[in-house]
């Protein structure tokens, strides 16, 4: 464990250093122009300090993003419209609702495909085609269509998230349900096991590693889906709304802190799934 820490820290430090260099370089012209207009001629150290302290930098420095994250999560009441916690919760609830719907649909689809041979060839192409449609193009259509039916708020966003979610789960689970080898299936046949028994005692347990692989991809996709779904709805609330509003008003710090929050959210959720996976794996034989 401790042996792994040093290389990881080194890589992190190198990335942060690169980021700082990038911030100085990207913001240099901005600062230089402003200083020239003011008739000032700062030295190099002053110039570097200024490039890392712009209110609307082209590329904010890491500490600025951290400070903005802190300010918008810790110093504001969570009920405030400017609190990032509020917006993160809006996105999280839509993402989780969509995740649940998408996973349920994906698993159900996989069960159907594995048990009804005709479905594989008839449905599979549509599933694949559905993912070829860019979600960015699809989201406004769904939001507007559902809005016309009087559906607003969480559900339309959850549907977009579910649309991205079900695919990795369905593909993974079809493979997972088919993971048992011919010998295991023959064995069940020698006992005259029903299809239900084969499913619950063999196919389902064998598919769990595939399920978790699919769930992790789906979880990250659900957050992306929820954020994208927030863009066309007038950007009222959510991390997507913060991104959009930030880009309207050139609030790069706001954009970056919303991005960081989205990344943090996804990483935490995927991490939780990893813990669940390990707990399940421990129950299913310490090594398996």
């Amino acid at each position: 464990m401790s042996r792994a820490v040093l290389p990881v820290l080194t890589v992190c430090a190198a990335l942060v250093a690169l980021w700082y260099l990038g911030a100085v370089w990207m913001n240099w012209q901005l600062v230089a122009d402003a200083q020239a207009r003011a008739g000032a001629a700062p030295d190099l150290a002053e110039m570097v300090r200024l490039t890392l302290a712009q209110p609307r930098p082209l590329l904010p420095a890491p500490h600025q993003v951290v400070a903005e994250l802190w300010r918008s999560t810790m110093t504001l009441p969570v009920t405030s419209r400017r609190s990032l916690v509020h917006h993160a919760w809006v996105t999280l609830s839509a993402a989780l609702a969509g995740f649940g719907m998408g996973v349920a649909f994906g698993v159900a689809l996989a069960v159907a495909i594995v048990h009804i041979r005709a479905l594989e060839r008839s449905v599979m192409p549509w599933i694949v085609a559905s993912q070829a449609v860019p979600v960015l193009a699809l989201a406004p259509i769904v939001i507007v269509a559902l809005g016309a039916l009087g559906l607003e708020g969480l559900l339309p966003k959850a549907i977009i998230a579910a649309y991205l979610c079900f695919f990795p789960v369905a593909i993974g689970m079809v493979k997972g349900f088919r993971a048992p080898d011919a010998m295991a299936l023959d064995l069940m046949r020698t006992w005259s096991a029903s299809r239900g028994q084969v499913f619950w005692t063999l196919r389902l347990p064998a598919s769990l590693p595939f399920l978790f692989a699919g769930l992790k991809v789906a979880m990250a996709a659900a957050v992306v889906g929820a954020i994208v779904a927030e863009l066309p709805a007038g950007a009222q609330a959510g991390l997507g709304a913060r991104l959009l509003a930030g880009s309207y008003f050139g609030q790069t710090l706001q954009i970056w802190s919303a991005l960081a929050m989205a990344a943090l959210l996804s990483a935490t959720l995927v991490g939780l799934l990893g813990l669940a996976e390990r707990a399940v794996a421990r129950r299913m034989g310490p090594r398996a």
Binding site: M183, L187, T190, W191, P205, M284
Partner: peptide, 20 residues
């Protein structure tokens, strides 16, 4: 087979790894 008249042993043990 439906009357479960026989037990079958395969070339490999084919034990389910998630069961004791």
């Amino acid at each position: 087979r439906l009357a479960r008249d026989y037990g079958y042993v395969f070339q490999a043990p084919a034990l389910f790894p998630w069961r004791t």
